[in-house]
Design a protein around this nucleic acid. Structure first.
Length: 231
DNA sequence: ACCGGGATGTTCT
DNA sequence: GAACATCCCGGTG
């Protein structure tokens, strides 16, 4: 028999199988420019109840300096959380049916956030799958697709508008959404490119992801760094 | 593989 | 009234 010995095409992430970790992310890490925060969130863990996943893809939104940001034209009822302290969860509703989750960063009073676009599931896959398939017509869902895409990951973790403004770094809360540091260093050289789904500021390369990771949304890395050799 | 469109409702012009 | 930080399905090569 020919067993698929998928060698290079499906290289497993370095942190596969590592523990989730229980230490909240240091808030000081988030009190910086979202362009610096975004790549440093790669490898951190977003958890909600028993469900958790490693962050593998993010986008930076730079508030008043960013025409594509919800906060570009100032504060409104929807984006108020973006102006809060670093570490809050900004959740908004879009396209009439989807929720998207962001980690607020920067100094309080300044609107800045990092949108979470994809997670690599770590725990609670069964719950995630149940949440994703609820109300849908799907009959199966691969682990790889559980938290792939910003709206998919919120649905998988059960995050919605009720979570807007939640403090992700509150160690006393083990049921709501939280941001954990499992001691895994972010990739030394993350991939980056334009943000997805925008009509403004399309030249900015403010999307960051773990190179070659299978759980990133969109198409996998066409070229995993220096792949000029093989076929 | 790639592209096009529909679902669905809040937000802002 | 248009746009929207999306997703899924079905059509076509």
């Amino acid at each position: 028999m020919k067993r698929p010995s998928t060698s290079s095409a499906e290289a497993a992430p370095a942190w596969r199988g590592l523990r989730t970790g229980t230490v909240p992310v240091d808030r000081r890490l988030l009190e910086a420019d979202p362009l610096d925060v975004a790549p440093r969130l790669l490898g951190k863990v977003l958890a909600c109840g028993e469900r958790s996943g490693r962050i593998v893809e993010v986008e930076a939104y730079r508030g008043s300096a960013d025409p594509a940001s919800h906060a570009f034209r100032g504060q409104t009822a929807r984006n108020a959380t973006m102006f809060g302290r670093a570490g809050l969860l900004y959740v908004y509703f879009t396209y009439g049916m989807h929720w998207c989750a962001n980690v607020v960063c920067g100094p309080e009073g300044e609107a800045a956030a990092v949108m979470l676009r994809a997670l690599e599931p770590v725990t609670g896959c069964a719950q995630m799958r149940a949440a994703r398939m609820k109300g849908g017509r799907r009959t199966s869902l691969a682990d790889r697709d559980l938290c792939r895409g910003p709206a998919n990951l919120t649905k998988a973790l059960g995050i919605d508008g009720r979570c807007d403004g939640w403090d992700l770094l509150d160690p006393s809360d083990a049921l709501g959404p939280r941001l954990l540091d499992g001691g895994v260093a972010p990739p030394r050289r993350p991939s980056r490119g334009p943000r997805v789904g925008l009509s403004r500021a399309t030249a900015e390369q403010w999307r960051f992801w773990v190179a070659g990771n299978q759980f990133v949304s969109g198409r996998p890395d066409a070229r995993p760094q220096g792949g000029a050799g093989g076929t």
